[in-house]
Amino acid sequence: MDTGRGAPGIDRLYAASYRRLVVQMYAICGDLADAEDAVQEAFITALRKQWTFRSVDNPEAWLRTVALRRLHRGWRHLAVVRRHQGLDRGPEPAAGVGPEHVALVDALAHLDPAQREVVVLHHLADLSVAEIADQLGVPQGTVKSRLGRGRQRLGELLAEREEPSHG
C-alpha cells in the first residue's frame, strides 16, 4: 500500500514505510541486508534531493523505484558467473526469518528476475498492473504476461516443495 498523494515529512514517511519497503525488496532480492541497504540508500537519496522529492505525486513509489534501481545495479547475473568461473548461489536466507518465509522467498528466487519483480510488486506491494507498468516503465501487456507466467511458475515451485518425495 502506498502513502498516496502529497509529500509528508520524510521522517514520517520513513517511519511509515521503511519496513514495508524492506520486505518488498527482500522478496525481490532474497537478501535482507541488501534489501535494507537499498531502502536506506533510497531514503538518503530522497534527503539529498528534497526539492525534487517533495514534488513527486507518490513518494513511496519514488522510493521504491530508487531502491529497485539500486538492487538492479547490485545483482549478480548468472551470465557473469557462468562466463568467469563463478558459481550460481541462490540468495542466502536472512537470519531470523521463519521457514515459511524462506520457502516463499526461495521459490521467488527461482523465478526469472523480471517475473519475480512483477509478482512481488503486485502481490506484496499491492500495486495494480497499471501502477507496475508505470513504475517499471514497461507496457501493461508486458506486466500482464510476466505476472501470468510468474504466478504459474511460483505455484509450480511451491507445489513441488509441498509434495512428499516418492521412492
Partner: peptide
Amino acid sequence: MADWEQLREMTQHVVPPDFEALA
C-alpha cells in the same frame, strides 16, 4: 498457494536504523 501475509508479517521484525543517522 503462496502465503503473502506471512511475508508481510516480516515487517514486524525489521528494525529501521535511526533516521537522524541517515540524515
